[in-house]
Design a protein around this nucleic acid. Structure first.
Lengths: 210, 210
DNA sequence: CTCTTATCTGAACAGTGCTCATATAGACTG
DNA sequence: CAGTCTATATGAGCACTGTTCAGATAAGAG
């Protein structure tokens, strides 16, 4: 039947079929949608509409709506990872404290610049790591950077995972609290930058005292 | 028909057409729903169904679905605040480090024990603080505890708000990362307790060095 | 007792996720 | 080239959703 016969060995590029590459087009349409609207405005039908295709077409590329959103989330992690790489490689004095500063800043900035996208990345639905394996893989790449940094900092002797977790919790908390509101209301500025800068210095002072 | 009590001041029993306190019944039904299912399973119609009422009835008590969820969120903050109060008042040696430990533990535990409820409390929809004034008020009561603690810690001299924010970000991050998955997968235990305990000691050691 | 008002119903509308039989267009085989 | 074969897209349809609205009903005020 329509179950895979194993003939097609992971086509590197989907050529011009009916649409071209509908899968990516759907992901892009979703990204464009959540860039302005919030994630609640994402409906499979609207996404299909924007891709110029019927409501049933996406089901040939994604198992269901969650599968599309998972692909969007995965691309979020990819973008975040790339940004972290760029940020780390552009440090003049690559001491661990500067690396922590760079990672924290670009993590929080990414989340604040793309709130809906960031929210999709952390939906509870992605819990099943077999079902969403590639998403988890990409997410773990991000965590890997924190782990490496933690290893350098602690010298591997004490509880490096706890440190990495705690750092992640901190930046994720800053970003989430800002994006979801309650934190935003307590500060004068409409930018997170001042708060971010102060929190970073506070935190770095704790983790890496001179 | 069941018992027909003449007076009905505080609405003990669901009565026929006009049922005692539908508003609270709807909130309770939602709470019962998200105690087992996740928040995506909450539909106004299902909640109405469980309250033994038609789909249109809730609209006499809540402007829309979000208004119901906001009431649920508000009750979440109330429960959290109560738990924090109890926790703080049951400390033997009320030093600031013990207070921070207590707050962090009971905050994270609440979030982990009621993941869906906690998630509702931090929906981006509550951004409008005029529209959801009472919700924001209850949320700020929770933040107030952190602020007080930060004031005691810093003696009011340095950046107490930054400290309070950072602490909040930390506990919120721990709870969120655990609930939404990525963190959970990196630890052996199916309980957050070991990780929580280590993170708490790490953090307290930073904020309040001996 | 009548009248008023808050509450609840039943029906309806538009929109959703998803399935299925059917149509079509590239790609593969001969 | 013709003749498949299969992935892709369609359009209709189902069950469900949030929300509105005219009308029924109950509870309380006069």
């Amino acid at each position: 039947m329509t179950t895979r016969v194993g003939k097609k060995p992971a086509a590197p590029r989907k050529r011009a079929y009916h649409h071209g590459d509908l899968r990516q087009a759907l992901v892009d349409a979703t990204l464009k949608l959540i860039a302005t609207e919030d994630v609640g405005a994402v409906s499979l039908r609207e996404v299909a509409r924007r891709a110029g295709v019927t409501a049933a077409a996406p089901y040939h590329h994604f198992r269901d709506k969650d599968a599309l959103l998972a692909a969007v989330a995965e691309e979020g992690y990819r973008a975040l990872n790339q940004r972290m790489d760029e940020s780390l490689s552009s440090i003049r004095a690559p001491r661990t404290d500067n690396q922590l500063r760079a990672l924290a800043r670009c993590y929080v900035r990414f989340a604040v610049e793309h709130p809906a996208h960031y929210r999709v990345m952390f939906r509870q639905e992605w819990g099943d790591e077999e079902k969403y394996a590639s998403l988890h893989a990409e997410g773990m790449r991000a965590y890997g950077r924190l782990q490496e940094l933690a290893k350098e900092t602690t010298g591997g002797k004490v509880d490096m995972d706890t440190l990495a977790f705690t750092v992640w919790a901190w930046v994720h908390g800053l970003a989430s609290l800002w994006n979801e509101g309650p934190l935003r209301k307590k500060t004068r500025s409409d930018s997170i930058e001042p708060l971010l800068e102060r929190s970073v210095e506070l935190f770095v002072g704790w983790v890496m005292p001179k």
